[in-house]
């Protein structure tokens, strides 16, 4: 099964997302900020990254840019909140494949993940 890197500074969100993915057969690795995400990506080589935007140390946009510079094929789905429109736009420009809006329904997340893993 596909390996997914879940990046979020909120333990609660990481936990909830990881649990949902694991219950649906995905292998999950986690990172709690953008910098950690880059390091974990290099080590774990995941199939997909779910990337939060507002994070300490290195935010989701910068992390995405670094990931795409390291691996131009990196598949990243942004996990965003309402009110972050301009940042999501920037993320799409920087190569994010998709985005989902918090709070999301489990099906919405699984659908977005499934699409990326199939593609």
């Amino acid at each position: 099964m596909a390996k997914i890197l879940v990046v979020d500074d909120a333990m609660f969100m990481r936990n909830k997302t990881s649990k949902l993915l694991q219950e649906n057969g995905y292998e999950v690795v986690e990172a709690s900020n953008g910098e950690e995400a880059v390091a974990r990506y290099m080590r774990e080589n995941p199939d997909l990254v779910l990337m939060d935007i507002t994070m300490p140390v290195l935010d989701g946009i910068e992390s995405l840019k670094q990931l795409r510079a390291y691996d131009p094929e990196a598949k990243v789905v942004m996990v965003t909140a309402l009110g972050q429109k301009s940042m999501v736009l920037e993320a799409i420009k920087a190569g994010a494949r998709d985005f989902i809006v918090k709070p999301f329904q489990p099906d919405q997340l699984l659908e977005a993940v499934r699409k990326q893993c199939e593609a």
């Binding site: 909120a10 609660f12 969100m13 909830k16 507002t54 300490p56 909140a81 918090k102 709070p103 999301f104």
Partner: peptide, 18 residues
């Protein structure tokens, strides 16, 4: 930025829990 992020995080969690 930290305070902003904190509220952003709580809001996200609360929204997820309804």
């Amino acid at each position: 930025q930290e305070v902003f992020r904190a509220m952003h995080t709580v809001k996200g969690g609360a929204a997820t829990l309804g």
